[in-house]
């Protein structure tokens, strides 16, 4: 991932900053330029970082990426998390055993390393989730 892109995503990745439509009050994550209602008048909105698991999968064979090395050990858990404020996102669930996982389980955001561009590269930090 290019450095300017990592830099542009810092607010979003570190603190779950999305957007709020001033017209219909819909909240979006990731942030949007235009609301689905057609309104362009959006403001930044910081999500509280609480939500629940909509669905999940355990990844046992990971695809290789020569450029970016993700910080995770196989097996790891990927889930779709619905934030309490509405939007859903895909994120890794950390420090949990498979027996703890369940659809509907409450989760909370944690701050972790996401990936780095090789040994010499910049580290990208951001959100993952853990069982609340």
């Amino acid at each position: 991932m290019a450095i300017p892109r990592i830099w542009r995503q810092i607010e979003e990745k570190y603190n779950l900053v999305g957007t709020l439509c001033k017209d219909c009050k819909k909240k979006h994550f990731p942030p949007r330029e235009v609301c689905s209602c057609g309104c362009y008048d959006l403001e930044k909105y910081r999500f509280l970082g609480k939500g629940e698991i909509v669905t999940y999968t355990v990844i046992r064979i990971s695809s290789e990426d020569n450029e970016d090395t993700p910080f995770r050990n196989i097996p790891y858990v990927l889930a779709i998390v619905r934030l309490d404020e509405g939007p859903s996102l895909t994120a890794q669930i950390v420090q949990c055993s498979e027996s703890e996982l369940m659809i509907g389980k409450k989760v909370e955001m944690v701050f972790r390393k996401l990936l780095e561009k090789g040994e010499k590269g910049v580290i990208q930090y951001g959100y993952k989730f853990r069982i609340a």
Binding site: F71, R72, N73, F111, K113, Y125
Partner: peptide
């Protein structure tokens, strides 16, 4: 964990 370091723990 593999994705934790001084910065993440300080946060």
């Amino acid at each position: 964990d593999i994705d934790e370091d001084t910065a993440t723990m300080a946060v």
